[in-house]
């Protein structure tokens, strides 16, 4: 992060061998123009592209055509796992005397407390509930980061000086070079035509 990639190469660099680029970045100064531009980029048929904003912009998901994430379903599964784990943990440790191998051999112990049934479900509910929440919440954060491909500290965009304001007050569209429709000069012109305040290449 301390070294910054040079900003867009001069026009004379057309003939010289170009460095491999990550993609082309277009800067916008307000969410409205970004939203309109995003619609156009999507209509143009690009696939490997993204918007970068300091805060989630309302309506941008729809404009970009982002599919709903599968995250809630996975978190629901994690929550159910937590409930099950909570029940098995308590029933095994407090109501059985069987031995199980869990890294080491462990044996349950049937606790007889004031003549209550060994499997006293109402008393097990608080811990089952807490483990449901614990597993759901930790996997919610973990899976969110995993699906987002984070942490990724060495991303090419983070080395771009102009891009520093993506977390402040600027709005960016980045079309990646791996997109089948990507053709550097054409893509740059296309982005300029969308009302971008600045367009430049991002070094890979």
């Amino acid at each position: 992060m301390t070294t910054f990639a040079p900003s867009s190469p001069p026009a004379s660099a057309q003939s010289a061998p170009r460095p491999k680029i990550h993609g082309v970045l277009a800067e916008f100064h307000d969410p409205a123009s970004l939203l309109h531009a995003a619609e156009k980029v999507r209509e143009a048929g690009y696939r490997w592209w993204d918007c970068h904003t300091p805060f989630p912009v309302h309506g941008l998901d729809k404009a970009m055509g982002i599919q709903r994430t599968i995250l809630p379903l996975l978190v629901f599964g994690a929550g159910l796992t937590g409930t099950t784990v909570g029940f098995i943990l308590q029933a095994f440790t407090n109501a059985t005397s069987i031995s199980v191998w869990a890294l080491v051999w462990v044996t349950g112990y049937p606790f007889l407390i004031s003549g209550k049934p060994l499997i006293s479900l109402p008393a097990f509910i608080p811990v089952m509930f807490e483990l449901t929440i614990l597993l759901a919440a930790t996997s919610c954060v973990g899976l969110m980061l995993l699906l987002n491909g984070l942490p990724w500290l060495s991303h090419p965009l983070l080395a771009n000086k102009r891009f520093l304001r993506a977390t402040d007050d600027r709005f960016f569209i980045v079309i990646q070079s791996r997109d089948p429709r990507f053709f550097r000069s054409r893509t740059e012109d296309f982005l300029k035509g969308l009302g971008a305040k600045a367009v430049e290449a991002v070094e890979a």
């Binding site: 993204d50 970068h52 994430t69 995250l71 759901a136 969110m144 987002n148 991303h155 977390t167 960016f172």
Partner: peptide, 20 residues
């Protein structure tokens, strides 16, 4: 964590925040 304000990230992020 290398957060770069990607809207594809924001989408999952907001969903995760709501779930939390």
């Amino acid at each position: 964590l290398g957060w770069r304000g990607s809207n594809r990230h924001w989408h999952r992020y907001e969903r995760a925040y709501l779930l939390l």
